[in-house]
Amino acid sequence: MFPIRDHNPSGRTPYVVYLLMAANILIFISYVGIMDNDRLISRFYFDYAVIPARIADGFALETLFTSMFLHGGWMHLAGNMLFLWIFGDNLEDEMGHLPFLLFYLIAGIGAGLIHVVTAPDSVVPTIGASGAIAGVMGGYLLLFPKARVDVLLILIVYFRVFTIPAFIMLGIWLGIQFVGSLASNPDEGGVAYWAHTGGFLVGLILCIPLWLKRGGPEYWSRTHGHPPHPEHKYKLSQSRIPRVPRK
């Protein structure tokens, strides 16, 4: 189950979201050619990825920034850019361009630091924009909890698009990350669940002053938990899997 779009496209052009997407894509293209060379890619990750043990020793602090623009494959990149596209534009619209950029970078660095704190001895390189994007999702949940999100559900041969409130989709996602955080061993590599969980919470906390400035609960009352501009109506396509009537 993953989101494919929300029902509130941005009220103005999300230039920073476009810029971040372009930066992530172009940077990935710049080194994708060495990914089959173990020596070169290992050196590349050593220089630019977060390696908790190095940061815990006070080295390579700049990688908390550089690692946010690296990805381990096309699907890793595509998934992160999809989430950024869906949830980033409304947050940029509400914050303004420069504040949103600062928010994104702080959330990403915060997510990286939380990953380091939870695995200070790990020498596994960590890359990806997902910590920063998790921060975007946390802010989105606080400001627009009832925004309608279209989700694609895939169950083996069953494909269906349906609409749910953002708080359900994001709550399920956060729950999965938290359970993964408790069950995973960062020293063995894999998904950096604590970076996702931590980034989400950092983003939510960073958005509290903006939410309070807008009126807190009164803001939710005015907007009904949706982004404060007209909702776009989509025509959902029905599943092509034939229905078998019950006898």
Rank of each mutant, 00 (worst) to 15 (best):
L26Q: 01
F28S: 02
F28Q: 02
I29M: 13
S30N: 10
Y31C: 00
Y31Q: 00
V32M: 07
V32Y: 13
G33S: 13
G33W: 03
G33C: 10
G33E: 02
D36R: 08
D38S: 09
D38T: 10
D38E: 10
L40G: 15
I41Q: 04
I41C: 13
S42K: 04
R43P: 03
R43E: 04
F44Q: 05
F44K: 03
Y45P: 05
F46I: 01
D47R: 06
D47C: 02
A49W: 07
A49G: 06
V50G: 00
V50N: 01
I51G: 11
P52L: 05
A53S: 13
R54Q: 14
A56Q: 08
A56V: 02
A56I: 02
D57S: 15
D57P: 03
F59L: 14
T63G: 07
L64E: 09
F65I: 11
T66L: 11
T66H: 07
S67E: 00
M68L: 06
M68K: 03
M68A: 08
F69W: 14
L70P: 01
L70F: 06
L70Y: 03
H71C: 12
H71R: 07
H71L: 08
G73M: 02
G73K: 04
H76I: 00
H76Y: 01
H76N: 08
L77H: 14
L77C: 10
G79V: 11
G79C: 09
G79L: 14
N80K: 09
N80C: 07
M81Y: 09
L82N: 11
F83T: 07
L84E: 02
W85G: 08
F87H: 15
G88L: 04
D89K: 07
D89A: 13
N90A: 11
N90R: 12
E92K: 01
E92F: 02
E92A: 01
D93R: 04
E94A: 12
M95S: 12
M95N: 14
H97D: 12
H97T: 05
H97P: 10
